[in-house]
C-alpha cells in the first residue's frame, strides 16, 4: 500500500508518468478478451485448411474436362468428364427415384443457417444473463446441428451405395456408388474430394455439437451465472458460425458451380 502513495508523489515528473497508450499494457487493445481473440485466430487458421481443400477442388476440377452437351450428348456419368452436381445430388429421403436436383442439400443448408440463428439468440440471451433463454436456444442449436449431421450421414450413405443403374467401367463391369478408389459418378478424385471436404466439415459440425452439449450442461449447472458472464457461449458461437460459413462456401463450390 505504501508503494502506491510514493508513486503518486513522484508522478508529477514527466519521466515517471505511467505509460497509458493503447499498446502499453494493462488494457485490451482489440477490446476483446484473450479467449475470444484466440478463437478468432484459431478460426483464421482453420479457414486456411478449408481454403486449401477448396482450392485443391478448383485445381483438380479445372484439370478435368467439363461435360459439354453439344459434344457429349445427353448427360451420363463417365470418368472422362467432371460430373454435373445436380445429376449426382438429386435424391431425397423417402422419395425413391424421384429426381430432386439439389433438393436435399438445400434443406441441409437451411437447417445449418437456422442453427446459426438459434446460436446468435443464445449469445444474445447470455448478454442479458437470461439463463433460461440460453438453455432454450442452446438446445435448439444442438437439435439442428444433430439434424444436419444425420442428413449428412444419409447423403454419404446414398453417395456410397449409388444408383441401381450404376456406370459401365473401363474393364467392362458395372460399378455402383463410390469409395476412395472407384466411383460411378466420374473421375476417382471427384469422390475423394467429396469424402474429404464434406467429411472434414462434418467433423467440425460434430465437434461443435459436442461443445454445445458441454456448454448446455455448464449453463444448467449455473457455471456461467456464477462466473458473471456467458462469454463461453460467445466463443462457442464464433466456432459454430464459422462452421456455417464454411458450409456456405462448400455449398457454392461443390454443389452450385
Amino acid at each position: 500500500m505504501s508503494t502506491i502513495s510514493t508513486t503518486q508523489v513522484i508522478s508529477d515528473s514527466a519521466l515517471d508518468k505511467p505509460r497509458t497508450g493503447t499498446w502499453d499494457g494493462g488494457n485490451e487493445p482489440f477490446n476483446a478478451s484473450y479467449g475470444k481473440l484466440m478463437m478468432w485466430f484459431f478460426l483464421l487458421s482453420d479457414a486456411f485448411t478449408f481454403a486449401a481443400f477448396l482450392t485443391t477442388y478448383g485445381l483438380i476440377r479445372h484439370r478435368y474436362a467439363a461435360y459439354d452437351p453439344a459434344v457429349n450428348g445427353a448427360f451420363h456419368f463417365s470418368t472422362k468428364w467432371w460430373p454435373v452436381p445436380d445429376k449426382v445430388f438429386n435424391a431425397f429421403p423417402g422419395m425413391g427415384h424421384a429426381d430432386v436436383p439439389l433438393g436435399f442439400v438445400a434443406l441441409m443448408t437451411m437447417i445449418l443457417i437456422f442453427s446459426s440463428v438459434t446460436m446468435v439468440l443464445a449469445v444474445e440471451a447470455g448478454h442479458r444473463m437470461d439463463k433460461k433463454d440460453v438453455q432454450k436456444w442452446l438446445l435448439w442449436t444442438i437439435l439442428f446441428g444433430a439434424t444436419f449431421l444425420s442428413s449428412q450421414a444419409w447423403e454419404w450413405s446414398h453417395f456410397i451405395h449409388g444408383t441401381e443403374k450404376g456406370t459401365l467401367m473401363n474393364d467392362g463391369t458395372v460399378f455402383h456408388g463410390a469409395n476412395l478408389a472407384m466411383n460411378q459418378y466420374g473421375p476417382v478424385l471427384f469422390a475423394d474430394l467429396f469424402f474429404f471436404i464434406t467429411g472434414f466439415h462434418g467433423t467440425h459440425v460434430f465437434s461443435g455439437v459436442c461443445l454445445l452439449v458441454w456448454c448446455f450442461i455448464a449453463t444448467t449447472n449455473g457455471t456461467f451465472e456464477k462466473r458473471g458472464h456467458y462469454e463461453m457461449v460467445e466463443k462457442i458461437g464464433l466456432y459454430w458460425h464459422f462452421v456455417d460459413l464454411v458450409w456456405v462456401f462448400v455449398f457454392t463450390f461443390f454443389y452450385l458451380v
Binding site: 483464421l44 481454403a51 485443391t56 478448383g58 485445381l59 479445372h62 474436362a65
Partner: peptide
Amino acid sequence: VLIPMALLVWLLVALVTEGNAIH
C-alpha cells in the same frame, strides 16, 4: 482477420490457373 484471407484469393487464382494449364 481480413488481410490474411487476401492471400487465399491469390492461392485460389494461382492454382485454378495451374489446373487449366494441366488441362
